[in-house]
């Protein structure tokens, strides 16, 4: 009786629920919780210790710089490419829209290798020329930024493209008909409507960038106090039997990640509420 969805909850419902909760508990929740408890096993000393070590502070700064620069680049690039893909017609569009996702499915080690082959100072395709101009990419900050930008390249685009498609062009046409120039239409109509998608993309990009490990490991040279990022420091600490240090740094990174998810969660709820309010009004 009653609709197939609204029917009384059967055994299957409870079995599924139990399975899903157990699965997520064992795979994610419990291990993550253990890292938190391990971090605070000896009080907050290991956490505050991070900020007393100048090399770790440098690693944190380097990670933050690379993440911010990569995010800025990817945001501008992402918005421009999204607009081009959705609003314009040009040769090679289909291939571009397929290739743009490639960075998400390429191994970080392959990313590192690819950048190495082109930008290595000694024998890369462009490396020696750039070095001749006094610009070092590999084993320096630019390489770290490029590796970071590579792995998080599509994240803004993937958020913005569906929203652009959904809002359609009526509002933009209306703005143009009222005399707005292309720039004015973009700043005053298009950008406000994709605002939350962009913010969402930025948060994801930032989180992904801060956590990049494999690609950075290949291109950075991993020099203490110079090109060692936070994630590389975690590995180093753990392998040198400084487990407390590794846990503390991990906790710091994990906190940023969880914060990012929570922000995304709030944005999503906000956008959903907005959409449903609009739906109710129409």
């Amino acid at each position: 009786m009653a609709s197939p969805r609204k029917g009384r909850k059967g055994t299957v419902t409870y079995v599924l629920r139990l399975f899903v909760i157990t699965y997520l508990l064992l795979l994610v929740a419990w291990p993550v919780a253990l890292v938190v408890t391990n971090t605070f096993e000896g009080g907050t000393a290991s956490l505050t210790g991070i900020f007393d070590d100048p090399d770790l502070v440098h690693a944190l700064q380097l990670s933050a710089t690379a993440a911010v620069v990569a995010t800025v680049i990817n945001t501008v690039f992402g918005v421009v490419v999204s607009l081009l893909l959705v609003r314009y017609q040009f040769p090679g569009k289909r291939i571009l829209s397929a290739l743009i996702d490639l960075p998400l499915s390429v191994s970080p080690i392959v990313v590192g290798l690819a950048l190495l082959l082109v930008y290595a100072g000694r024998d890369g395709w462009f490396g020696p020329t750039l070095e001749g101009w006094g610009f070092q990419v590999i084993f320096a900050t630019p390489g770290i930024i490029m590796a970071t930008a590579f792995v998080s390249l599509p994240l803004v685009i993937r958020e913005v493209v569906p929203v652009l498609q959904e809002i359609g062009t009526e509002q933009e046409q209306a703005a143009s008909s009222l005399g707005a120039s292309g720039w004015q239409t973009f700043w005053r109509i298009t950008l406000p409507s994709i605002k939350w998608a962009v913010v969402y993309g930025i948060v994801l990009t930032l989180a992904r960038s801060l956590g990049e490990f494999g690609a950075v490991k290949v291109v950075s040279g991993n020099v203490l106090g110079e090109t060692r990022t936070t994630t590389l420091a975690v590995e180093e600490k753990y392998l040198n039997f400084d487990q407390q240090g590794a846990y503390a740094l991990s906790f710091l990174l994990a906190s940023v990640s969880v914060l990012a998810i929570v922000v995304v969660f709030i944005i999503r709820a906000r956008v959903a509420r907005h959409a449903s309010a609009e739906g109710a009004a129409s």
Binding site: V32, V234, S250, L253, V258
Partner: peptide, 19 residues
């Protein structure tokens, strides 16, 4: 649970190993 699902995406991979 919704939050937990996204943790593997957001967590740095090296931290995931430690976790």
């Amino acid at each position: 649970l919704e939050l937990i699902i996204d943790i593997p995406f957001a967590l740095p991979t090296i931290v995931a190993g430690l976790v």
